[in-house]
Design a protein around this nucleic acid. Structure first.
Length: 202
DNA sequence: GAGTAGATCCTCT
DNA sequence: GAGGATCTACTCA
C-alpha cells in the first residue's frame, strides 16, 4: 500500500474549500485505547472562518471552544453538539485564521468490529458512519481529542492512493445558511457521487 | 418509505 | 437561560 501521511503544507494553504474537496478519498486512522480503526472520507463541508456566518468563529469570535480553530492547519477540532454528538473537524489555513473542514461521512475500512461495538450495532450498515455525529462515535473520537495533531499517534490522516475523479465529486450549497447572503450560494459541501456512505441528500 | 418530534448537555450571553 | 454544524424512533401511508 502506498500510504503517506498528509503534510502540514497540505493543511496550511489558504484554500479551505479546495482542501475540503481534496480530503475526499483520504483516510482517517484512530488509535484509541490501543485499538486501531480507520475510514475513507466520502463527504466534507468547508467553514471559512471569520467571514463565514455559519462558522463558530465568525468575525473572529474567540472563546474557549473555538480556540482550537485558531491553531495552524493540521490539528483536530472536536466539539459537542446537542449534548450527545461529537463532531470531528480538520483545522486548515494558518495560525489565527479559524478555518476548518467538517468531516460529515466516512466509509469504514479497518476495525469494523470495534466500530459496530461502539455504535451498539450488530449488523454492518452504511448508517454506521454516515453522518458527522456517528462517524466520530464509530471511530472513538471525543471532545478530549480536540487540539490533537493529525499526524500524531492517536489520530492520523493518510493518503492511501484512492483516486477520486473530478467527475465523481458533487459540490452542493450548505443547508440552513440562507441568512449568509452570497455565502449561502457557495458550494462548500463536497461528496463522492453515488457512494452509499454519504449522508442522505437534502 | 417518508416525514416529524423528542432527546439531551455543553457553550455563550 | 436559550440554543445548537444531529440522530433515532415512531407514526402514517
Amino acid at each position: 500500500m502506498n500510504a503517506s501521511l498528509l503534510s502540514m503544507e497540505f493543511y496550511r494553504r489558504p484554500d479551505t474549500a479546495g482542501i475540503a474537496r481534496e480530503l475526499l478519498g483520504k483516510v482517517i486512522i484512530t488509535d484509541i485505547g490501543g485499538i486501531q480503526s480507520s475510514g475513507r472520507i466520502v463527504e466534507t463541508e468547508a467553514y471559512l472562518g471569520a467571514g463565514d456566518r455559519a462558522c463558530h468563529a465568525y468575525n473572529y469570535r474567540r472563546t474557549n471552544r473555538t480556540e482550537t480553530m485558531y491553531l495552524p492547519g493540521g490539528y483536530a477540532y472536536v466539539y459537542m453538539c446537542y449534548g450527545i454528538h461529537h463532531l470531528f473537524n480538520v483545522v486548515t489555513h494558518v495560525e489565527n485564521e479559524p478555518h476548518a473542514v467538517l468531516v460529515r461521512a466516512v466509509e469504514p475500512l479497518e476495525g469494523l468490529e470495534i466500530m459496530m461495538k461502539r455504535r451498539d450495532k450488530l449488523k454492518f450498515l452504511p448508517s454506521l458512519t454516515a453522518g458527522p455525529g456517528v462517524l466520530s462515535k464509530a471511530l472513538g473520537i471525543s471532545r478530549d481529542h480536540s487540539g490533537q495533531s493529525l499526524s500524531g499517534p492517536v489520530i492520523r490522516l493518510e493518503d492511501q492512493g484512492f483516486e477520486i475523479k473530478p467527475s465523481e465529486i458533487i459540490a452542493s450549497p450548505r443547508v440552513g445558511v440562507d441568512y449568509a447572503g452570497e455565502d449561502a450560494l457557495l458550494p462548500l459541501r463536497f461528496r463522492i457521487k453515488d457512494n452509499p456512505f454519504t449522508s442522505p441528500a437534502r
